[in-house]
């Protein structure tokens, strides 16, 4: 797992994906920080995290798109799958590489916190709460992106499908929001979609609630999709 992790980290930087990802992340979060916190004159960074949800949703597929699709296209998967490593090691090596880059990006909030601390008192509890919420959200999104990447040979397809999938889940939550008091079918739909929805679970944190069930949900999604990815690799050998 270590070898694959190190190679992927290296590839992120040699291919430039890491720079694009970090620059966009820092730039956008910087703007949000300036507008919502500094100019607004509040010491709470929650609005930054709230706005970053959509950005993360569109950025993470760029991080995960080529992780497995490119291996298949260039037939480098033959080297991995015939080496004495398990499928979980391959998948998790790649997964944690992407997660590491995401954590590097996200940790910019500590720089913002330092800036903020020179101006006033930082509310560290909400900052950490939000930080971990975004970390686990990213962990779930990366697993989804990695799974989509395992299904195709084309990295652009992988990126677009991941974005659309995450966006549809996000949108569906808005669409069914007034189904809560509707008929049986509507209530059922509402129940299903709110169960799998990411946004409202994430929003609890930005509203200042540290919700353990949400954390468990994100970790479960991450595990489940990594499991699916392993199954896809496994199935490909048997087809």
């Amino acid at each position: 797992m270590g070898a694959i992790y190190r190679r992927e980290m290296g590839a992120f930087f040699t291919s430039g994906v890491a720079y694009v990802f970090l620059v966009v992340f820092y730039f956008v979060s910087g703007i949000f920080f300036y507008n919502y916190v500094l100019t607004a004159g509040v010491a709470d960074v929650s609005p930054v995290f709230q706005s970053m949800f959509l950005v993360v949703m569109f950025l993470i597929p760029i991080l995960t798109m080529k992780l497995l699709s490119e291996e298949k296209k260039n037939r480098t998967d033959q080297g991995l799958l015939t080496a004495p490593v398990g499928l979980w090691e391959i998948v998790l090596g790649k997964y944690f590489a992407a997660l590491t880059l995401f954590i590097i990006a996200e940790s910019i909030v500590f720089v913002y916190a330092i800036i903020l601390s020179t101006l006033g008192n930082v509310v560290w509890q909400t900052l950490f709460g939000n930080y971990f919420a975004m970390l686990f959200l990213g962990a779930a999104f990366i697993a989804v992106g990695l799974f989509i990447s395992s299904l195709t040979e084309n990295q652009i397809t992988a990126a677009i499908v991941s974005m659309v999938l995450l966006f549809v889940i996000y949108l569906s939550e808005m669409l069914v929001s007034n189904f809560e008091n509707g008929n049986v079918l509507q209530r059922f739909l509402h129940k299903v979609i709110t169960t799998i929805a990411f946004y409202s679970k994430y929003n609890e944190f930005t509203n200042g609630v540290f919700s353990l069930p949400s954390i468990v949900f994100f970790i479960s999604v991450a595990f489940l999709f990594n499991f699916f990815t392993v199954r896809v690799l496994e199935k490909r050998r048997w087809s």
Partner: peptide
Amino acid sequence: YLPEIPPLYVDM
């Protein structure tokens, strides 16, 4: 194993 197409990462 050396497959038909060597599994090389060209960016390394």
